[in-house]
Design a protein around this nucleic acid. Structure first.
Lengths: 251, 251
DNA sequence: CAAAATCCTTGACCTAGATCAACAAATGTC
DNA sequence: GACATTTGTTGATCTAGGTCAAGGATTTTG
């Protein structure tokens, strides 16, 4: 439990205008006038599962919040090796204010709706409304923390620890739990295919499948269907994940 | 060459008051009055090689620029496995404005001098001087980009590619090169021990040593002593690194 | 409802990198 | 200048996870 953050990691109850979800992002502290400004430059976009939203290196002229569905940020090597570097769940934010182009592929993993803000006017609002910039800094620092946890996972954890960590991370996000909040029985639906998990974890999909089976056989998790997981003892799973961290709040 | 950043990645020539180095960081766009403010809250600290500056989870009541020497940010697991998550060279910035505690160990890898700013007053300056916050956001986004490159390295690259990548990254930092700038002969001094490299790359130190030897035998690099490296053909080394990225500008 | 995709699991085998171990070279120290 | 320490190299061996391959379970499509 090393994190003592001043950033609101819970969802705030300030909705962004008539936006159907509560953005964790930019509008957390905006007043009505400011929300109206944001309203004026926002628009919705839908994407089909599998669709690439932006290619690495392409111009990306918006920032956005995920309304529903899942998107991933992925780095690709010329020979096709892929590493996920960000996982966007509903209410997550994506965008690089001050940057022209995307540094990674942004892919809709499921059918996806995003609430987008055109970048230029958004940046203007950032200038005139300091706390929008402040929120963005906080969010970016959170992402950096998550990225660094993730680096530990990629560089040093075993396959089994990686899988356990991923389930913990998703469970926490799912339940909006802070570290240490949950114990006892927890239920999660994995929103990712085995392949997507392998791209997240720096493994092959076969290894992912095998390790999930192993955790099942050892009674750490129970599985119905392919994605529905019951964790009888959450603390036990955290032990398997091999760290006492706060798990990070993903990108 | 995917990066097209608006952030100044070159050093700016605005020194921070009488600070002996040019901070890439906070004072890049400050005027004299603002520099004076920063001057008033800054102080210098020296550390010996090997000294831990802050432990993960400890209170960290300052932000700082590296004046000379090298520091690393490292995540540690209970059983001692270590993963470097940030490498700080002279002029790099470290700190988590808005955060109470460190999320990783900060260690002086060599003898080190830092120019520190007490956090509270620094945050006050951030509020009154918007572009300081803006610079910080830019810097944090750069770090996030670097972290994501690093994740690709950790998750998907071979040992040989990892070593080649590290040498490329250090060479670029050393020469303050932008991607694509350098070709032909390049000379670098590795500022890290084999062990530190292994912590950076998610390898063992033996593998680091072997792969460096292999690159030497294959004529990709030449070595004098243990750390002094000559790269006869920089583009060749980039090929070995297995990516066309901008290499990232580390934490 | 058959055919074709997807998505997932499991087995057999292989290899990159880890582990264990010995030693060499450089550096510090009294 | 001998001794200890730190740093780096190389060899022998082991193993976690990758690769290749077959097949099962669902979902999609026509």
């Amino acid at each position: 439990m090393s994190r003592t953050s001043t950033a609101p990691t819970k969802f705030t109850h300030v909705a962004c205008g008539d936006c159907p979800i509560r953005h964790r992002a930019v509008c957390a502290r905006c007043d009505d006038t400011e929300l109206k400004q944001l309203d004026e430059i926002k628009y919705y976009r839908s994407f089909q599962a599998g669709q690439t939203i932006v290619w690495s290196g392409d111009r990306m002229d918006f920032v956005a919040s995920v309304v529903s569905g899942i998107a991933t940020l992925t780095q690709t090597m010329e020979d096709g090796r892929r590493q996920m570097v960000g996982l966007l769940l509903p209410a997550d934010f994506v965008g690089r204010p001050g940057r022209e182009t995307a540094a990674y592929d942004v892919v809709a993993t499921t059918d996806l709706v995003m609430c987008c803000f055109r970048k230029k006017p958004f940046e203007d609002i950032m200038v005139t409304t300091p706390h929008v910039g402040q929120r963005l800094l906080e969010m970016t620092l959170d992402e950096l923390d998550a990225a660094r946890e993730w680096m530990l996972l990629l560089g040093r954890k075993t396959a089994r620890e990686k899988i356990a960590s991923l389930i913990v991370i998703i469970a926490r996000r799912d339940l909006s739990l802070k570290p240490g909040d949950a114990d006892g029985r927890v239920v999660v639906d994995l929103p990712l295919t085995r392949e997507a998990m392998s791209e997240y974890l720096g493994l092959t999909l076969e290894t992912v499948s095998r390790q999930i089976s192993a955790l099942r056989k050892d009674g750490i998790i129970q599985i119905e269907g392919k994605r529905h997981i019951t964790i009888p003892d959450f603390d036990r799973l955290i032990e398997e994940a091999g760290d006492d961290s706060d798990g990070g709040f993903l990108a």
